[in-house]
Computed example of a mutant assay.
Amino acid sequence: MTALDFELLRETRAARPGRIAEILAARRRRDVIAGDGRLFIVAADHPARGALGVGPNESAMANRYELLERLAFALSRPGVDGVLGTPDIIEDLALLGLLDGKIVVGSMNRGGLRGASFEMDDRFTAYDIDRIRRDGLDFAKNLIRINLQDAGSADTLEASALAVSEAADAGIPIMLEPFMSEWVNGSIRNDLSTDAVILSIAIASGLGNSSSHSWLKLPVVPDMERVMASTTLPTLLLGGDPTGDQDETFDNWSNALALPGVRGLVVGRTLLYPPDGDVVSAIDTAAALVHRR
Rank of each mutant, 00 (worst) to 15 (best):
R134G: 07
R134L: 13
D135P: 03
D135Q: 13
D135M: 09
G136R: 03
L137H: 07
L137F: 07
L137P: 07
D138V: 07
D138G: 08
F139H: 09
A140G: 15
K141P: 05
K141H: 12
K141N: 02
K141G: 05
L143N: 06
L143R: 13
R145C: 02
I146H: 01
N147P: 01
Q149G: 12
Q149R: 14
D150W: 08
A151K: 11
A151Q: 12
A151H: 11
G152M: 10
G152E: 09
G152S: 03
S153E: 04
S153P: 03
A154I: 15
D155A: 15
D155H: 13
L157R: 02
L157I: 14
E158L: 15
A159S: 14
S160Y: 00
S160M: 04
A161T: 05
L162T: 12
L162D: 11
A163Q: 10
V164T: 08
E166G: 00
A167F: 00
A168L: 01
A168K: 05
A168V: 00
D169N: 09
G171K: 05
G171E: 06
G171R: 04
P173F: 06
P173N: 09
P173E: 10
P173A: 04
P173I: 07
I174C: 03
I174A: 04
M175S: 10
L176R: 02
E177M: 06
E177V: 09
P178L: 05
